[in-house]
Design a protein around this nucleic acid. Sequence first.
DNA 1: CCTAAGGTCTGTAGCTGATACAGGCTCAAG
DNA 2: CTTGAGCCTGTATCAGCTACAGACCTTAGG
Lengths: 137, 137
Amino acid sequence: MHDRSVKPLRRVDLARATGCNLETIRYYETVGIMPDPPRSAKGYRSYDETHVRRLKFVMRSRDLGFSLEEIRELMGLVDNRTQTCAEVQAVAESHLKDVQAKIADLARIERVLSETVARCTGDAAPDCAVIDALLEA
Amino acid sequence: MHDRSVKPLRRVDLARATGCNLETIRYYETVGIMPDPPRSAKGYRSYDETHVRRLKFVMRSRDLGFSLEEIRELMGLVDNRTQTCAEVQAVAESHLKDVQAKIADLARIERVLSETVARCTGDAAPDCAVIDALLEA
DNA sequence: CCTAAGGTCTGTAGCTGATACAGGCTCAAG
DNA sequence: CTTGAGCCTGTATCAGCTACAGACCTTAGG
């Protein structure tokens, strides 16, 4: 009962509530990731809790490595929830495969780098194992 | 003895010899990763084996995830090899730490994603575990 | 009521690391 | 000589932000 006429959030309030960068909020609006919010008489954006939730969703998704395009896709599925969650699962699974591939790539890089660094003597440059590894085919 | 007056390489030859994209070569020149090559009378770039080696070095380094800035640093150390290889080792080691951190991040993401996807029933959207995970704090 | 701090608005530029394209010129093989 | 392949430059595009300029507005304290 203590929410009679909740005061609207300014852009900076939304930023603070979510930890999102101020400018990024505007960016998300221009690229359609966040909806255009209602404006005050003077043109000031005014947000509410739905925006906080949505932005948190976006940020969590970004944090999990989803691209903006994937997030758009996810949110589209959520917004008109006429379909089953199988589609959502498919997006997430496809993204999971991407992540696993990236891990495999990085693991290879890690192996090469750590082997190379270990071979390094710290002596004169002409004998540097890192440089050799990069120069050799 | 069969290299009397080796014929100069064109840009496309350098691209083919290294597997680098044609435009990327020009890009690397503008950002100072590759040197400005000598030009023919008509202004055509002309490369030789030193460019091939240098570009291969750059590509291998990129492949191992070094940023252009890091590559510039590495090449600076190689070019005026007045210092010991300890500096090179330091660059590589610092990069190795970055790579390991990235792997750890991705591993966390992978865990969250795979757990979430596994919880998915494929049923109606309102119960979708992926969406729930993204909506929950 | 006035002032100062802090917020807001827009458009635009910069960042990384490429990649692509237009429009015009040139080279080399047949 | 023709034709196709390649060259040149400048500029635009992409993701995903981040930052700044310059003008305007709001709000709290004195």
